[in-house]
């Protein structure tokens, strides 16, 4: 290490140092590669998918995958009960899952950080009130709360996302508050306050960047939770509505055929598992790199 430093004119930047640690984690790299593939598939879905995801081929109900007896080479992973190509639906479904993950995490992160920042910075009764509200949200099992919220807002993917974001944001609020409480007494914050920085500037420009590592890890974990919860809501009929090729909804549609046609059940679930696993691998890698204290070993 000393040698490299002696040779390179510039010391390694924070980003490079981070990448160095992250790249050493094989699992995280594999997860990253999988997600990259999924993002590409999602972006270019109409070009990559062999068929229209909602087109019903009336002569091919429940066609088995191509390699099985009775399978057709045009339907690589077979068709579902109304003759739609499963592979095309899975490829288009990647759009839904990544979209759900991204949007839910953005909403939960933005709300959670704002709320947690105010609670931690202002303190006193504001802090107590905010944290008790978060405790109330956390007292309900997350999926149950999301289910009831969707029942109020009406079934659909957008409402499911709002519900999941609301259920996930207390985690961000708690993390932000805890980080702010440790940071706000430090000298650099006091110095800027004395220099006349406004509270908003202190909160979001001075303190926030120093609270980021745990938030980034939590955001990754929430990404996978959001995908799982959205699929679960779809499975319970409260998420994306048919004929949308959302993976959880596909599973719900295929439930009655599970003993006759294993492929209609197996592939959508496998897609969910692979996506969530890849994100969790990245999450583990990020945690090990960003937060050595939370390192698992």
């Amino acid at each position: 290490m000393t040698q490299t430093n002696a040779h390179s004119p510039i010391p390694p930047g924070r980003l490079r140092e981070f990448w160095h640690g992250f790249a050493a984690n094989r699992g995280a790299l594999i997860g990253g590669a999988v997600i990259l593939c999924l993002v590409l598939l999602a972006v270019f879905a109409p070009l990559v998918a062999p068929h229209d995801p909602i087109h019903q081929y009336r002569d091919s109900f429940l066609t088995p995958p191509a390699w099985m007896e009775g399978g057709k080479s045009v339907f690589l992973l077979g068709t579902d009960a109304v003759g739609r190509d499963i592979l095309s639906r899975l490829i288009h479904g990647a759009r839904y899952s990544l979209y759900v993950g991204l949007l839910v995490v953005t909403i939960a992160l933005a709300c959670g950080v704002a709320v947690g920042m105010v609670a931690g910075y202002v303190g006193g009764w504001v802090d107590t009130a905010i944290m008790r509200v978060m405790d109330v949200i956390l007292a309900f099992p997350s999926l149950l709360l999301a289910l009831v919220l969707v029942a109020i807002l009406g079934p659909g993917l957008t409402n499911a996302m709002i519900a999941i974001a609301l259920v996930l944001q207390p985690h961000f609020a708690r993390l932000t508050r805890a980080a702010v409480l440790t940071e706000k007494g430090k000298d650099y914050v006091t110095a800027l306050r004395v220099a006349g920085a406004s509270p908003l500037r202190l909160m979001f420009v001075t303190i926030l960047p120093n609270c980021m590592p745990p938030l980034v890890v939590q955001a990754t974990l929430s990404f996978s939770t959001a995908i799982l919860d959205a699929a679960a809501l779809g499975f319970l009929g409260m998420g994306a509505q048919p004929p949308a090729p959302e993976w959880g909804t596909m599973l719900a549609d295929s439930r009655e055929f599970i003993l006759r046609a294993w492929w209609v059940v197996t592939f959508p679930g496998l897609a969910i598992l692979i996506t969530v696993l890849a994100i969790n691998l990245i999450g583990d890698g990020l945690r090990d790199t960003l937060d050595p204290k939370m390192r698992k070993g």
């Binding site: 799982l228 959880g248 003993l259 197996t266 969910i272 598992l273 969530v276 969790n280």
Partner: peptide
């Protein structure tokens, strides 16, 4: 990372 609703269906199959 398991979507348990799918895992349950697989075990049933």
């Amino acid at each position: 990372s398991m979507p348990i609703f799918w895992w349950g269906l697989l075990l049933v199959i």
